[in-house]
Structure formats: C-alpha cells, structure tokens
Simulated scan of single mutants.
Amino acid sequence: MTQTTGIAITGISGRMGQMLAREVAANPKMQLVGAVERSGHDWIGQDLGGAMGGTANGVIVTDDVATAIADAQAIIDFTTPASTLAFAAAAAKAGIVHVIGTTGMSTAEIAQLKEPARNAVIVRAGNMSLGVNLLTLLTRKVAAALDEDFDIEIIESHHNQKVDAPSGTALMLGEAAAEGRGVNLADVSDSGRDGITGARKRGDIGFSAIRGGDIVGEHDVMFAGAGERIILRHVASDRALFARGALKAALWGQGREAGEYDMLDVLGLGE
C-alpha cells in the first residue's frame, strides 16, 4: 500500500482553504489530517466535511495548530502575515514542511522566516501556478536584455474582495524585473500614482492594480519603449491551479533539507 502524506490546512473556511481540502481529497498521494480556523469561528469543533456542506470525513476543525499538525507531514497556509509567522514556528517545532501562499507580507515579516527555516522546509511563493513562475523567469530575462529605454509596468487584476495591492504575484514579478536589471525593487518601485505626479522617472518599475467582480487573477508585464511594446501575460481562470501548485510543493518538500525555497525550486526552474 502506498504511503500517503498527511496534510493540514489553515484558514480552512476560506475560499482557498476549502479548495485545498477538495484537492487533497482528490489526490491519492495525500490525506487531510488537520484543519485550522481562527479562535471563535463557527466551524471550530465541527467535522470539516459537514461544515463544508458534504458528508463527515472525520477531520475536526480546531483553533489549536499543534493538534492539527500532530499527524501531518506538511501544513499549507494561505492566511495572514501574522498567522503565517505563528504557523511557521509551529511547523519548525514539528519539523514538517510549511507551504506559504500568504500574500501581503512585509520585508521584515519575510525576514522572520529565516529562523524557522533552520529546522523545517519552507516553500513560499507569491503565486503557486506553473504559468506564473514561468512568467517570472521570462520577466527576469527580458528585463536583463533591455535597458532603461524600456519602461516596465506590471498590471494586475483581481476580484473585488482582495485586500492587498499590489498583489503578491505582481511584487514577485517586480522583484524578477529588478533582479534582471540588477537593482533593488524598493529603490525603483512606483505604485502610488494619483494627481499631478510629474513625468515617469527613468528606470522605475511601475505597478497598476485593478479590482473588480470575480477576476481570479490576471498579470501583464509591459516593457514599453519608443515605438514598440513587449507584453508578457498570464491569465488564471480557475483558482484550483493555485491549490494544485501548493500540493505539489508539499510533496516536493518531503525529505528536503531545511531551508527556504520557492516554486521555481519545486518546478526545477531555479537558477
């Protein structure tokens, strides 16, 4: 009998949490062994299957992460920065893989992951999709090939309930563009245009955010020069692709050395 990988999911009542639970249930290599929600949530103490409107599956929703990961080999986390840091500490203590899809983390918060990464595998990405990670590679290469005669603008579109901007994916693409040009993104980022802003500064990497309806995720990286534009684009039409990417990362992390990784490592595209 093939051994399955035990998976715990945080933020289980959310759209991504429930999507992850369904994808784990459909994956013969995995078994859902833990489900976490914030204290006081209506689902606490309930069987997850019933809470999701289906049949009981024996997984009881808890607000105690230690209980949720007791039988897990990986925890998948699409929550908030503060919660993610707490889950990272718990995953490191248990020595299990921590897959992080949380967006909106500050540079200081990301730096705090170095300590738990000494004792556990952490796979963190602003986007878990194969296509977006290929787009990241292409963005870096095109940015390296073109000089500052080409303005770089990253345009992202998401549903009207998204709370952070620019998106984690947009920032990931911005980092790739900055790396390609050999600059620090913080020094050239331009995301706050409003009113009389003056002409665009040469070398800046711009961000534009659109929010509306139920857009899953669309990202364009535009290199605009005199008389020509190069546009790299990725469109997501089904958020299940993010869940599947996260599950791939959870499996990939089994048996790896402790440390910080990203989806390019998972996909064998790391350089």
Rank of each mutant, 00 (worst) to 15 (best):
A143E: 08
H159N: 09
D71M: 03
D63R: 11
A144Y: 09
E115N: 07
K93R: 15
D149W: 02
T169H: 11
G50D: 04
G131M: 08
A111Y: 06
V123L: 08
K93P: 10
S129E: 10
A111F: 06
G101W: 10
M128R: 03
L146D: 12
L146Y: 15
A144C: 03
L130H: 15
H158R: 15
D63A: 10
V132Q: 12
I122Q: 07
G49Q: 03
T136K: 15
H41V: 00
D64S: 05
A51K: 04
A165S: 14
M128K: 02
N133C: 01
Q112H: 09
A91M: 02
D47C: 02
I75Y: 09
E115M: 01
V132G: 06
G49M: 00
V61R: 10
P116Y: 12
G126Y: 12
D63V: 01
T103I: 02
K162T: 00
T55N: 10
V123I: 12
L48D: 07
S167E: 11
E109Q: 15
A143M: 04
A66G: 06
P166D: 03
H159D: 07
Q161M: 00
V61W: 13
H98D: 08
V121E: 13
K141H: 11
D149A: 02
L48W: 14
W43H: 09
I69V: 09
P81K: 08
G95I: 01
D151C: 02
I110Y: 15
S129C: 04
D63I: 01
T80L: 08
D71G: 04
V59L: 05
A72R: 03
A143K: 08
D71Y: 08
I60Y: 11
I76L: 11
S106N: 14
A70R: 09
S167N: 12
K141V: 01
A120R: 06
I69T: 05
H41N: 09
L48V: 05
M52K: 02
N127Y: 13
P81S: 09
L135D: 13
Q161L: 00
A91V: 01
T103F: 02
D42N: 05
G131P: 03
S129R: 08
T136L: 08
D147W: 05
I69W: 03
A74S: 07
P116C: 07
A74H: 09
M52G: 05
G101Q: 10
T55Q: 14
A170G: 15
T102E: 07
L130Q: 15
T139I: 01
A89M: 07
L138N: 14
N119L: 02
T67S: 08
S157Y: 14
A68S: 07
I60W: 09
V61D: 10
A143V: 01
T103E: 13
N57K: 07
V123W: 04
W43L: 05
I44D: 07
N127I: 01
T84N: 06
G58F: 00
G50C: 00
A74C: 01
S157H: 13
I60M: 12
K114V: 00
R140W: 04
G54N: 11
A70S: 13
I100D: 14
A70V: 01
T103K: 14
I60L: 10
A89N: 13
D149P: 00
S167P: 11
D151Q: 14
H98E: 09
K162M: 00
V163I: 06
S106Y: 15
N119Q: 13
